[in-house]
Nucleic acid binder design. Structure first.
Lengths: 158, 158
DNA sequence: TATTGTTATACTCTATAACTATA
DNA sequence: TATAGTTATAGAGTATAACAATA
């Protein structure tokens, strides 16, 4: 009798109204980021790399022999929390710390050959994710999203 | 002699290269979300509301007398983690649980008058943040960002 | 004295298992 | 048997304080 309420749908189960949140940048950004990270984790599960771990290795690869503190700062990771993180990646044979002669308090960080290989694989998986996102948003949409998000994240003056 | 290296900048301190991360949706989305949340926390500090707490109250206000589990599900919050959260907001006199006669396992959740007042204040602060974002991205840019992020977050098929 | 890397630690967020009362 | 809400708990992620080695 009522075609709009199929038997599979319990009564009084209409979607909730998100109100102004539906148009709030912070809210939609958070939900989108969670969705993208969930997809990332599925894709990178075989490499056993979480988003942050991949970004660390990727940046070390793109900036060999930079100081530990510089890598951490570039990614917005606190120096204190970066220690255990780097140590684990080093234990897995993916990167290496080397004392600097110029300043013997500091370490230069580089990728090992295994690290290079894993980053190369990760880069391919990342490219596949970007392709998947292009499929959803269109090529222009994806580019525009990156542009707008980067613009926001680089803003220091609100 | 070298105008490109001012005295305030230590030598060998060039910005690190983010490589492909600079064009990766997941990475820029995460950085943008953190920036927006940091700004949110500054704006909402006087109300003592964190982003999630505000979204909960806002959705309850927009959907009075819905079940606790429905509110949690709408926001992607696990039922088990939602308990303490709601209890705290209830202790602060901002919302209220009421047993449902129809199903006495469930609670209907509503805002108290204080809760309504606080959400009203929060809504104004939120509008101010959106204005600030418009100032950064432009009106079209902000709208486009919301559209693209929402589209991504609503995608279930990757 | 200041800085790099470190340890210890606490606090928040999120996830899982198991319970209770109702259905 | 299944579901709504709950408790207990464990694991991440993130933050601060204090230290050793070096500058």
């Amino acid at each position: 009798m009522n075609a709009e309420t199929p038997a599979t749908t319990p009564p009084a189960d209409e979607r909730l109204d998100l109100g102004k949140l539906a148009d709030a940048v912070g809210y939609v950004l958070r939900r989108a980021q969670l969705a993208v990270f969930a997809d990332f984790n599925r894709r990178f599960a075989a490499l056993d790399l979480k988003p942050t771990q991949f970004t660390v290795l990727h940046v070390i690869g793109a900036n060999p022999d930079r100081k530990q503190s510089e890598v951490a700062a570039a990614l917005g990771i606190q120096a204190t929390n970066f220690v255990a993180m780097l140590t684990e990646l080093e234990k897995r044979g993916l990167c290496q710390r080397t004392r600097l002669d110029a300043d013997r308090r500091s370490y230069a960080v580089t990728l090992t050959p295994q690290g290079e290989a894993l980053v190369a694989k990760g880069d391919r998986l990342l490219a596949e994710q970007e392709k998947a996102i292009e499929h959803i948003l269109g090529s222009d949409g994806r580019r525009k999203l990156v542009e707008l998000a980067a613009q926001l994240s680089q803003t220091t003056q609100w």
